[in-house]
Design a protein around this nucleic acid. Structure first.
Lengths: 345, 345
DNA sequence: CTTAGCACTCACCATAACCGAGTGCTAATA
DNA sequence: TATTAGCACTCGGTTATGGTGAGTGCTAAG
């Protein structure tokens, strides 16, 4: 992007001002609030250029300018100086009571932490069942032909799967098979388990075929079987009511649009998936991505890991007009805290 | 309530009209749309009486009248004729794909069913862990001092509880204890288990004390440990975005208020609890109850059972101005379907 | 290239006028 | 005595009008 020093300074000032006030920015305001040693008229000329280049837009002819998505992108990529998280807020994150004991609960608490810090909507995507390593696999015979498969991951994620057994395969058989299968399947991800299961079936057609086919058929996969399909993780969404206090979303139709988007979780999940491998914090702005294209809505996302392996992603959703220099470190720090928590034994 | 025939007819007409149009009802409208053989002036006199008695209110002097909460209460208790559910809708409920396989999923699907039928917000309260009978209890030793308690109810509700064992109590011990404890504890509700556990501890101080105390301490209870406390069931809420299309809630502040109320789930849970033992469908209107007192918001609630035992409640939340004669049978029928599903083996 | 000056635009706000649905009251009527 | 017709009155909603001010684009001078 060929912007000279001065234009960049002005663009930066405009965005900062707009982020702070939510008001369209005029040329006078710029010269007054930011000491640039330049007259309003000059600023106007440059603003006209910036508008031509697609960085600014006018709500109407006689209003000030407003940054476009393109401007935010440029701002984040080259203009933004991310401040370190103030000591006090860092403490707040560290001391937030995140309990490991129950996994779903941990996810919920994390969304709440994100929401309360950023005042936007916190989201956390749980690890995908298909890609988490399960340390323990256990089969519990129930009454009749029913049995329960229990999967427990290193990090304490528990998944259950109800199985309907072959009539010829009794509860007693299951109990015997249990040890063997636990040994064979534990320490593997779901995909790896599938592979191993087909191997086993090839090796020994007779013994466990009955059980194993059931296991494969019934999805064989733990996790919520929602419309999103079992291969995706579950999405936890924080306090949506934060949205009501954001001036950008004062409009009922806008809020409605956002809520609808939240109810179609799979699109949001796809977007969060794209941040899964990236290092550090990523920002998605408004309409620039096909998965969650809503004018004026941005996502700040980071992945969390357990012992180096990516588990899932978390972040906040808010207006594009967002104080990125504070929100980014918040998301970053929260991801680190969650990572540490997941890595602890 | 001493209302003569004619006054009741007029009140009924007013409420019906208001439910249908969401507009304040004037005296002329009544005489035109409902053949009561009476002049507007007479209607006005009666309306004045009804207002004095607290059944009607005027938004402002020169507007028509609007029913109060008291009017809706009277309407539901004595005026309403609930129609049978039309064949077609009944089929829709019956054929809705409710899967028993995964319990949480079943709850979610049920909220969705309620929402899509009523166009209001469907809610389903899951059985309280403390009061469900668990058919199977199983302890799964994990690595280190950790172990998992798995509870499975008759209806297929699965709950997990992570335990931290006494160091002196090994995984091997647990395996041995497993059979014994499963036998002792299965077929009981949580409360009953607690009793039995204390009994066991009295009988035999040495053997399982280590495990049992951990079990009791860690809450010993399955279920989500949210702010609502473990003794309450979990609440599933359907598609909230239905709220945006309800004219009564066109106002941003009103919607905000409702969303806040939803985020404080425990109050809603307390209210739903009150309907747990009642037979049939119950209606809670606006501010008439202390747990969820929101002007203009009503709940239609019924309980669902498995083999005669109450499991939980479900219903819809919408404006007090609600076509009760269609919503009530919808809730009723859904509760019956869910009950049947839970009773099937 | 920058800047002062100036005419122009347009959302926003307040005021005023009008309309109409609806009311309460009174007096006539059955 | 209960009902009804008639009428003046109320008041929210809509539309028209004009003023205000922040902001712009353009032009010409520095």
């Amino acid at each position: 992007m060929d912007l000279n020093e001065r234009s960049r300074g002005i663009l930066k000032a405009i965005i900062n001002s707009y982020i702070a006030t939510a008001e369209p920015v005029g040329s006078r305001t710029i010269t007054k609030r930011y000491e640039l040693g330049i007259s309003p008229a000059t600023v106007r000329n440059i603003m006209a250029d910036l508008e031509e280049m697609g960085f600014l837009a006018q709500p109407h002819t006689s209003a000030g300018r407003v940054p476009t998505g393109k401007a935010y992108r440029f701002y984040i990529d080259t203009l933004l100086e991310v401040r370190a998280l103030p000591r006090q807020q860092e403490q707040e994150i560290m001391n937030y009571p995140l309990h490991r004991s129950e996994f779903g609960q941990l996810m919920k608490e994390t969304t709440r932490l994100l929401s309360s810090l950023s005042h936007y909507v916190g989201v956390v995507m749980a690890p995908k069942p298909a890609e988490t390593v399960y340390r323990h696999v256990e089969f519990v015979p129930l009454s009749g032909r029913r049995a329960l498969a229990v999967f427990v991951s290193e990090a304490g994620i528990i998944h259950n799967r109800m199985l309907l057994l072959d009539p010829e395969f009794t509860a007693r058989d299951l109990e015997r098979a249990n040890n063997f299968l636990s040994r064979e399947l534990s320490g593997k991800t779901l995909s790896q388990m599938r592979e191993r299961v087909t191997e086993l079936m090839d090796e020994d057609r007779s013994r466990y075929t009955g059980l194993l086919t059931t296991l494969m058929q019934s999805g064989g996969e733990p996790g919520e079987h929602g419309e999103q399909g079992a291969s995706e993780g579950e999405l936890y969404v924080g306090s949506m009511s934060e949205l009501f206090d954001i001036p950008d979303f004062r409009d009922l139709d806008k809020i409605k649009e956002i809520f609808h988007a939240f109810e179609e979780k799979h699109r949001l999940i796809q977007l969060l998936d794209r941040a899964v491998e990236a290092e550090g914090v990523q920002v998605f702005i408004g309409a620039e991505n096909p998965y969650f294209d809503m004018e004026g809505v941005s996502l700040v996302v980071a992945s969390y890991r357990a012992e180096g392996n990516v588990m899932g992603t978390l972040g906040v959703i808010g207006p594009s007009r967002m104080p990125y220099n504070t929100v980014i470190p918040i998301v970053d720090c929260t991801a680190k805290v969650l990572s540490r928590l997941m890595s602890e034994r």
